[in-house]
Amino acid sequence: MKLSKGYQQAKSDLDQKLHSRQAQRIKKMLIGQHLNDGWLAKIFIYFLLAVIAFLYLQPLFYMMSTMVKSVSDLIDPVVQWIPRKIHGQNLADAWRGLRYPEAFTNTIVIALSCSVLQVVSCAITGYALGRLHFPGKTLAFILIIVTFLVPPQITIIPMYTVFGKLGWLNTPLVFIIPALFGQGLRGALFIIIFRQFFLTQPKALEEAAKMDGASVFRLFFRIMLPLARPAIIVVFLFSFIWYWNVSYEASMFLGKDFQPLSLRLSMMQQELMGNSAIVYGAGAGKDPISEGPKMAAAFLIIFPPLIIYTITQRWFTEGIERTGLVE
Rank of each mutant, 00 (worst) to 15 (best):
G38H: 02
Q153C: 00
Y160V: 03
I82R: 05
K11E: 14
W95H: 12
L49T: 12
P83T: 01
I86S: 01
I311P: 03
A208S: 15
M295C: 11
L48P: 01
L112P: 01
I45Q: 14
L169D: 05
Q80V: 11
W95S: 10
A214D: 10
T155C: 00
Q270L: 14
Y62W: 14
V79D: 01
A94H: 06
G285T: 07
I144R: 03
Y127L: 06
T317D: 13
N36I: 10
W95P: 08
P305E: 13
Y127P: 07
V162S: 05
A103G: 04
A179S: 15
H87Y: 14
M268C: 06
T171I: 00
I156S: 01
Y56I: 15
S276Y: 09
L129W: 09
A53S: 14
I176Q: 04
A94C: 08
F141Y: 15
V120Y: 04
P304I: 10
R84K: 11
M273F: 12
W168L: 11
F190E: 15
R314D: 13
I75F: 01
F240V: 12
V109H: 02
M268S: 05
G126P: 07
Q9F: 11
L112C: 10
F217H: 04
L14H: 08
K11Y: 13
V78C: 00
I43T: 14
D257H: 08
Q8C: 06
I52C: 13
L117F: 13
A228D: 10
S251G: 13
M224C: 09
D37H: 09
L117D: 10
L263G: 03
I52E: 07
G126Y: 09
P293K: 04
P293S: 08
V246K: 06
S113A: 12
Q270H: 11
C122M: 09
A208V: 14
S215Q: 04
K256S: 13
S115M: 11
L261T: 09
M295N: 13
N275I: 05
K42D: 14
E102Q: 14
L169H: 04
L98I: 06
S247H: 14
S20Y: 01
W168K: 01
L205M: 15
F190K: 15
P83N: 02
I45C: 09
L254D: 07
I144F: 12
F194K: 06
L169A: 05
D93L: 14
V119E: 07
V71H: 02
C122K: 08
R25F: 06
S70G: 11
I177E: 08
G88S: 06
R218I: 00
M267E: 15
K27E: 00
Q16G: 05
L265D: 08
A214S: 08
A297Q: 06
L60T: 07
L272N: 05
I233R: 05
Q153L: 02
V174F: 03
W244N: 12
I144Y: 10
L227G: 10
V109D: 04
V162W: 10
K69S: 02
K137L: 06
R314K: 15
Q9R: 15
L149P: 04
K210M: 13
N36C: 08
M295S: 12
P260D: 09
F197E: 07
G164M: 08
I302Q: 09
E206N: 07
A231R: 09
M1N: 13
R99Q: 14
K27S: 05
A128R: 03
A188R: 08
P151W: 06
A94W: 03
